[in-house]
């Protein structure tokens, strides 16, 4: 059953009792009474499989904070498997908080993968990793490529199998920040985005629902073929420069969540991945030029 098949009232009922949301390879049990969170879930996860019961990996509960201040400034708190790893936030931030918590669940536990902060897309079975720090234009580029025929595996997390180096999908909504929200809305008017949430720690945030191609292949891994370090710079000419493999490995390592945790296994994975992939540094200002360049890479 898909989440979109539930009426708003039915979704609210499920989220009261506990709704299991399958985002392969992980499943989350969600509970919350917040209507605006329900609305965002309906937009961002409409085409995801859900269940009323069964196995799940993480239990998340988002609820209002009680107390007299709730009348002046409603706050919410999230519990993850009964613990409270996050600060309370304004109620309006519920959906971004849920997304951050879901990411945190994966990065703090899924150590059977080497985990990198990287967007991952694929052309057929060939994956491109886009590791980059915030502000690099990674998510904007990722969203644009996902809406231009590339298969989205993840906007945030590369799940790399240590032995095979296969990249496993973790298809979730793409987090767009600030100016990138309008850029994606204007260039892809049919894209489905959640309402904007203002004044979060990352500025204004909205989430793009994954395209059908990504969800249809949510269990299909891809092989690492390109590692591209993207950097948006206003006015820049679009350039794709080869990158020595050691720098690419170091950049992946810089963005690796469990490098110290699993140590040399993660290092060997990243170095091995960069042995097999073509490595580049991309600077761009024009999304159209960047998309065209990725098209050339895919057909080369």
């Amino acid at each position: 059953m898909k989440l979109a098949e539930l009426s708003p009232a039915a979704l609210a009922g499920r989220l009261h009792d506990g709704l299991i949301l399958h985002t392969p390879p992980f499943s989350f049990r969600l509970r919350s009474p917040l209507a605006h969170l329900h609305q965002a879930l309906r937009l961002a996860y409409a085409d995801y499989s859900i269940a009323a019961d069964g196995a799940y990996d993480f239990d998340l509960h988002i609820a209002p904070v009680s107390g007299p201040r709730r009348w002046l400034r409603p706050l919410i708190r999230i519990e993850v498997d009964g613990a409270r790893p996050f600060e309370v936030l304004p109620s309006a931030h519920a959906f971004p908080l849920l997304e951050w918590a879901m990411n945190w669940c994966v990065t703090s536990t899924a150590h059977h993968y080497t985990l990198c902060h990287s967007a991952v897309l694929a052309h057929r079975d060939r994956a491109v990793l886009l590791p980059a720090p915030p502000g690099s234009g990674k998510s904007t580029l990722c969203a644009a490529l996902a809406l231009s025929g590339w298969r989205l595996l993840s906007d945030e997390l590369a799940l790399i199998a240590p032995t095979s180096l296969a990249i496993h999908p973790c298809v979730r909504p793409v987090s767009l920040k600030n100016a990138s929200i309008a850029i994606i809305r204007e260039r892809f008017p049919a894209a489905r985005l959640t309402p904007e949430v203002f004044d979060t720690i990352k500025g204004t945030v909205a989430h793009l629902a994954p395209p059908a191609l990504a969800l249809d292949h949510a269990h299909v891994p891809a092989r690492p073929t390109w590692v591209i370090l993207p950097q948006y710079r206003q006015g820049a000419t679009t350039t794709l420069q080869p990158l020595v493999r050691a720098e690419a490995t170091a950049e992946l390592a810089r963005n690796c969540f469990n490098l110290v945790g699993i140590g040399t296994l993660a290092f060997d994975t990243l170095a091995g991945l960069c042995d097999t992939a073509q490595c580049y540094r991309l600077e761009y200002a024009s999304l159209d030029e960047a998309i065209a360049l990725f098209g050339q890479l895919a057909t080369a």
Binding site: V244, R245, A246, E247, T249, A250, A253, L259, V260, G263, T264, F267, D268, A271, C274, D275
Partner: peptide, 14 residues
């Protein structure tokens, strides 16, 4: 780890 383009990368696990 030595890459085939003559670059190498070193990691201190601790």
């Amino acid at each position: 780890h030595f890459h085939d383009d003559d670059s190498c990368v070193a990691f201190h696990p601790h």
